[in-house]
């Protein structure tokens, strides 16, 4: 099985849907491109810690309410 580029998971799409925020609006608030928001949502890009905090702040949530981490299977 191909390993995804990042093990960081997120609930950004769910939170956006709940709060009716579009990808373009979120990107504008974060100062990144919409492609970056899409890549983070799809787990193709692991955001920096600073950007992760900014995303959590936009949704008024705690960092671990937005992001998770898949532990290595033993």
């Amino acid at each position: 099985m191909v390993r995804p580029p990042t093990r960081v998971t997120n609930r950004i799409k769910d939170l956006r849907t709940e709060r009716a925020v579009t990808q373009a609006e979120l990107a504008a608030r974060l100062g990144v491109t919409r492609q970056t928001v899409i890549a983070i949502e799809q787990g193709r890009y692991s955001p920096t810690l600073e950007l992760a905090f900014q995303i959590a702040h936009v949704f008024g949530a705690r960092l671990d309410d937005v992001f998770g981490y898949l532990q290595e299977e033993r």
């Binding site: 580029p5 492609q35 890549a39 787990g43 193709r44 890009y45």
Partner: peptide, 8 residues
Amino acid sequence: FRRGGVPG
């Protein structure tokens, strides 16, 4: 990297 993602 743009299509497949950026590895850590």
